[in-house]
Write a protein that binds this DNA or RNA. Structure first.
Lengths: 130, 130, 130, 130
DNA sequence: GTGGTCTAGACCACC
DNA sequence: GTGGTCTAGACCACG
């Protein structure tokens, strides 16, 4: 069962949030090759979201060869998806962290203070659920 | 002299880029209370941007009590601006880092790997001139 | 249904009149949390003003956390809006009255005479339908 | 000696503030017919204000027949000024108070609460020197 | 000269 | 359909 959590206050578009979480589910083995993702209508109902939004997320995933259509049945995880997602994921995480760190440096805040913040924020979340 | 650089590839709106750079200039002491910011028309000419866009940036800064109008003369840095900007900046940096870290966690990548990436990215930039 | 009336003789800008009337509507319970305000285009058509003017009014309300965007859908009254508007309204009324009274004092008119005027003007309006 | 206090945070234009205070000074007998008001240059220096601003205030006062030019000498208080100002002043004060009260009513705040605020604000200032 | 308001209209992302 | 961004240009009040 695929669990997706949307954050409407997040500035990122909803379709991106959906696509990213599908990718994470693939990378972590929750979704494996051959498994069908929920139908657009079903997922849109579950997430209380416009069907177009889910369709767009799936479209993105198809264009990245992570989902492939099975005629008359739905969309399934592709054979190559796990590999693609695992490397993607690492690069993605690295890139986001790098951007945040670069911006922190550009703010001309004292580097020691930045390091302090980094330490705090990293340890903050460790050990808690969600 | 206030130097503002617009990044057209940056996804953030122009007025935000302007406002943020004014804030950084205040936080780092380049702009001090009582100093007039460049006039809307002047800055818009310098940045090759519509005057309305600059005006909007300045309006945001006014609503945050960082700029105050001197009638018929222009907009000046408020007395309280430096304090506000310094704490703002810290909060801003912290928030960006926290969001990136939270997303990294959500990716279900191995925490040790995340920490490794964090270390690498942080030390990467240190020691180099930007 | 939200009814907004613009007063062209009022010296206050149109966007302020719009924003204030939305606030009053929230304070008096005509608009409740979760309700969508009329779309920018619709209200601008109804009021025969430029869409940008309505958008600006809504932007002010957003920056005061009274409206929040529902992406692709519109702007809704925030959960905290009623409380904010009710206290705001009281402060607003108080401020206007204080300013008028202060100016009356500064006029060096006999205080007894001012009090007399205050009484008259206050009782004048009571009991009549506006 | 004419004492004028400008409030730069007041939303009213400076030239209006100057003109009004001259009127109050006439109404209260500080300035009497035949007395010369300070020259534009002198008053502008004293108030740290653009000479144009003082000139405009004086222009308004002349157009209301409160000041009259004495060739080669300056502007003097007119014979009829005190009467004009005294009635003006009462009407002015009354009008400002009425407008504030009307707006308070329009806010649909509970009338009892408005009366409460009125009482508080009125008694607040009594007894203190400003 | 300054900022503020408003109009008109284009283009974009999102749902 | 929705709001958001940006441009272009007119007009106003203030100093």
């Amino acid at each position: 069962m695929l669990l997706i959590h949307l954050n409407t206050t997040d500035e990122r578009p909803i379709y991106t949030q959906i696509a990213d979480q599908v990718k994470f589910a693939i990378a972590s083995g929750i979704l494996t090759p051959g498994v069908l993702v929920p139908s657009v209508r079903e997922l849109s109902k579950q997430l209380v979201v416009n069907p177009n939004t889910v369709a767009r997320a799936y479209r993105e995933l198809q264009s990245q060869r992570l989902l492939e259509p099975v005629r008359g049945t739905g969309l399934q995880i592709s054979e190559s998806a796990p590999d693609l997602c695992r490397t993607d994921r690492r690069e993605y995480v690295r890139r986001r962290l790098r951007l945040a760190i670069e911006e922190a440096r550009r703010s001309e805040l004292d580097p020691q203070e930045i390091e302090q913040i980094l330490r705090e924020e990293w340890s903050n979340g460790n050990g808690r659920a969600e």
